[in-house]
Nucleic acid binder design. Structure first.
Lengths: 194, 194
DNA sequence: AAATATACGGGACGCTGTCCCGTTTAACAA
DNA sequence: TTGTTAAACGGGACAGCGTCCCGTATATTT
């Protein structure tokens, strides 16, 4: 008879593994800034001083590495939604402010917007993360703005976010292209017709 | 002394070269439909029954192949602008109709919108082609709509087109995503505030 | 029919993501 | 402290892709 129903993992994670994961996260964050989120795996591994297999072992897909690097900021974005709704008189203004923050996040993460609209299955974990974490927040804001009568469009959160991603994906380096202005136009279009 | 100031090209293009170029164009059109405009060069070459070097020789960059395949449709789009402006009472409606046609074009060419917002230098000829051929048309429509007072936004043609491209890039296969609806929102946002 | 430039096909090269394999080393036990 | 074991490691093999060269075939001209 087994000595326990819950076998209790025999060993904790090794110290060097924990250390490597941190190095990897820091290195990835730096490389993402300089070369974008689609930088070659080898570059990130080199920056962290590890082999390619190590990064692949810790983060099986690129999406998981990206999530790990940006988790805090994305979570903060998700928490911002309800707060803005509470602290702002106008639901539409809350939506507008939140969307602005989302755009700020996207345009400062080179290539992230493009990755969000990629259909490569490699990025599915990232899509799921956004789908679970931030899309509901956007939908909620949208619903509130609709209830208050300021938004008439029947668009739902995921489509709005997809569109915003698309508008921001064009802002890779063309500095004369202002993604914020475009998203502003889009959000303006959400309001009731004249 | 040279016998002429204009040396006159000594030979016409070879018959097999002309034939191959046509096969290539047809094959590329088919492959683009089934696999998108970023299909591997080898696939297109195989479909045309030629070697990879042949396609590379006729169309040094992928962009030039894409241009050759869609030239007629893009040119038609460019001609539509002035015509719509003439035949439509309202400049804003003309803009709206033209944008609709542009969206129709983009969403039926798998991956083309994504390519339009790529910064890969390989696609520069394609960007230039649009910049010279259709962006001025869009700008013209926009100017007309501004003169008639229906559009207040100071956005210029290239940015609007970039934005439309971004909105359409998300429509790769997610059939629940309606690029037209999103572009409609954007164009609605162009109009004067309430 | 012979000569020649043009076009051809296939393969080599470099880059990338993916993943396996022999070796190292941290964690645990005696 | 020292031996054992499993976790983690690094580097390299492999495949897919774009790019481009080179020896060969052929359309065109004389």
């Amino acid at each position: 008879m087994p000595k326990s129903t819950t076998p209790a993992p025999p060993r904790a994670k090794r110290a060097d593994a924990r250390r490597n994961e941190k190095s990897l996260l820091n290195a990835a964050a730096e490389v993402f800034v300089s070369s974008g989120v689609e930088a070659p795996i080898r570059d990130i591994a080199k920056a962290a001083g590890v082999g390619t297999a190590t990064i692949y072992r810790h983060f099986p897909t690129r999406a998981e590495l990206i999530i790990a690097v940006y988790r805090h900021q994305v979570d903060a974005l998700a928490e911002d939604g309800p707060r803005l709704l509470r602290e702002t008189d106008n639901a539409y203004d809350a939506l507008r402010t939140w969307v602005d923050r989302f755009v700020d996040f996207l345009v400062t993460k080179h290539g992230l917007a493009a990755v969000l609209q990629s259909t490569d299955t490699c990025f599915d974990p990232l899509h799921d993360y956004f789908l679970d974490g931030v899309v509901p927040v956007c939908s909620h804001l949208l619903d509130a703005a609709r209830e208050s009568g300021e938004v008439t469009s029947e668009i739902d959160g995921i489509h709005l976010m997809r569109a915003i991603g698309g508008l921001c994906a064009g802002a890779t380096d063309a500095h004369d292209y202002d993604a914020r202005a475009m998203v502003d136009l889009l959000v303006t279009g959400l309001r009731a017709r004249v």
